[in-house]
Design a protein around this nucleic acid. Structure first.
Ligand SMILES: NC(=O)c1ccc[n+]([C@@H]2O[C@H](COP(=O)([O-])OP(=O)(O)OC[C@H]3O[C@@H](n4cnc5c(N)ncnc54)[C@H](O)[C@@H]3O)[C@@H](O)[C@H]2O)c1
Ligand SMILES: NC(=O)c1ccc[n+]([C@@H]2O[C@H](COP(=O)([O-])OP(=O)(O)OC[C@H]3O[C@@H](n4cnc5c(N)ncnc54)[C@H](O)[C@@H]3O)[C@@H](O)[C@H]2O)c1
Lengths: 236, 236
DNA sequence: ATGTCTTTGTGAACGCGTGCACAAAGATGG
DNA sequence: CCATCTTTGTGCACGCGTTCACAAAGACAT
């Protein structure tokens, strides 16, 4: 079992900073909207506003991809859509398995934005035998025993985990063993994976707690915390 | 309408760095698990491993909260649970409304991890009149018209948006107008909010695209991109 | 061709976050 | 009371990310 180092030091793959990679999908979404309205070109200022970022940041981000703009005019929308799609690897198909078809897993399976960008749900997996065969979003739920075969046969490299926290590590191990190298984890656990496997997590509970922190600050504005006001428990 | 600057420059509220705030829930989760196993104390090394972070980082994070450790021993688990909870504002109740009770909204409503940490679902709201009154996770779905009254009456300060993208900005405006100052957005749109309102977004599609980017890199290992291989479309 | 005007692409400065490495603090045992 | 051993708390250096500000590039009109 690997130590789950999962924190590569901001890998900067071929010179594209991680922070930039995380924003490319945002730009792509804004550009796609422009494209649908048949807007031919867009300035960094306009596009930045649409994506909710600073325009200098956007220009610098694009500069990592190459010089795709025209001074005095802006960026060609279609061309940029293509370049970003290619950079993100969206010009190819990515088979995905979803494991754990409960409330969340079923919602994910039904999510339209999945297929829209080259992500194809190859299979839905669950340990509950009672679920097996049932159709969710038009796909039959398969039993978890079939995991390895499905991953290998469909060359699945991306797995989505929506099982309870207790099962997440075991599912991860099986996915990784079968050949999956990218995992999107919705279960509230820290996953251990070998080097070379990417894990991203989505954690509702953490997001809410961060909001609560700032909310508390807003409420306590001006009022000074006594700070010595610590009841009861103290360490030996 | 405000410009939706939502990016405060790493606010550093009362000296606690934003990056630290984002990790506190992680520590809290690990500590809670220890607490349930009645472990009295824990070293920074052990806790860091459980939370999947560097131990020096963890110690520095805790140092922002105060000197709660004992050299040669470690940290008192219960005490730390209390301190972090207090810092995050989890010692009080946070009423939350969920807007858009479709696939995702219903899954969120059913999510147990919600109530477990002081977040109480005050109401479920949807525009679909056919849904009104139906029970989801034991709560009746209320019509969106009741939004303002519910927010005011329950002093709701946190809103969760799970509507289609097209409705998200309008829902946001209404929430903010009614007094909500923190928003967790699941719809794939950039939201504009006035200063003082926090927005956090959860975007499945973006996460997948980031994974795809790295996946593509792994696949293309060694093989050099010709880079001049750009078909068809070129800007004038 | 030349000048003007717009917008890109980037050099440079700065601030935040991370991790090493170690001194100081305290526990523990004799 | 002293020595030893463990573990914290932090000074420091470094690298990444952000933003400003501006020179250069190109479009467009005359
Ligand atoms: N529902 C939410 O909104 C939400 C939000 C945030 C996080 N989460 C997390 O997502 C996960 C799923 O949440 P949910 O509400 O859908 O739970 P759920 O109980 O409705 O669904 C879990 C599913 O996983 C299946 N499962 C259990 N063990 C399995 C295994 N070893 N292999 C394959 N499948 C297995 C179960 O049969 C079940 O169908 C949980 O970890 C939860 O904490 C959920
Ligand atoms: N399902 C997922 O896994 C998933 C994942 C990522 C993002 N999202 C996003 O979350 C949102 C919801 O997804 P979903 O799959 O639950 O969609 P859904 O269509 O199942 O549910 C949307 C719900 O919002 C309600 N609604 C529409 N307009 C409204 C309004 N103005 N006010 C209040 N309610 C309104 C609809 O009646 C419906 O019940 C979408 O924006 C989607 O892109 C969903």
């Amino acid at each position: 079992m690997a130590t789950g180092r999962s924190h590569r030091p901001a890998t900067r793959s071929r010179g594209i900073p991680e922070a930039t990679v995380a924003r490319l999908p945002l730009y792509l979404r804004a550009l796609t909207a422009l494209s649908e309205r048949s807007v031919p070109t867009v300035s960094s200022e306009e596009l930045a506003a649409a994506a909710g970022v600073n325009s200098a940041k956007l220009r610098k981000d694009f500069s990592y991809l190459g010089s795709y703009g025209t001074r005095g005019v802006g960026y060609d929308v279609e061309y940029l859509v293509y370049q970003i799609s290619r950079e993100l690897g969206l010009t190819q198909d990515w088979p995905v398995v979803i494991v754990g078809i409960g409330n969340l897993g079923a919602a994910l399976a039904n999510y339209g934005g999945f297929a829209s960008r080259g992500f194809r749900v190859a299979a839905l997996l669950d340990a509950d035998a009672a679920l097996a065969g049932r159709l969710v979003a038009g796909l039959p739920v398969r039993h978890i025993d079939e995991l390895e075969a499905i991953v290998v046969d469909n060359q699945v490299s991306i797995g989505v985990i929506a099982t309870p926290a207790g099962a997440a590590q075991e599912v991860t191990d099986r996915l990784v063993n079968a050949g999956v190298t990218s995992i999107l984890n919705f279960a509230p656990t820290v996953l251990s994976v070998p080097d070379g496997v990417d894990v991203r997590k989505v954690d509702l509970s953490i997001e809410l707690q961060i909001l609560a922190f700032h909310e508390q600050r807003k409420a306590g504005e001006g009022r000074q915390e006594p700070d010595g006001d610590v009841p009861a428990v103290m360490p030996a």
